[in-house]
């Protein structure tokens, strides 16, 4: 696979390190009543066959965390954005 880093250009996949589903969002708050939400965030995954957004770290390059949209069956890469450019979750907007 080759991944197009927004900062470095198209680079071979081994420059990057994978870290799972990028659609999960860290909950806000640590109330015991939020345990289900936290459990979902830390442990449960959609794990789809097909398109998914996932975190890749350009560990052998600019060290940016990227959100790569990729097909888990064909391994086709559709698009890449930097994680830091992602819009804040609606939930966080509410919180702030």
């Amino acid at each position: 696979m080759r991944i197009h880093c927004p900062y470095c250009g198209e680079r071979p996949a081994e420059e990057f390190t994978f870290q799972g589903d990028a659609d999960v969002r860290r909950p806000q708050g640590n109330e015991p009543s939020q345990m289900d939400e936290w459990f979902d965030y830390v442990y449960l995954r959609e794990n789809p066959r097909g398109r998914m957004k996932e975190y890749w770290h350009h560990s052998g390059g600019c060290r940016s965390w990227l959100i790569v949209e990729r097909d888990t069956d064909s391994h086709e890469v559709f698009g890449v954005t930097a994680a830091r450019e992602r819009k804040l979750s609606p939930q966080r907007k509410r919180a702030s």
Binding site: M1, A13, T17, F18, D21, M52, T72, D73, H75
Partner: peptide, 8 residues
Amino acid sequence: IDGYNSYA
């Protein structure tokens, strides 16, 4: 493992 999600 290759290290990325895959069904291929």
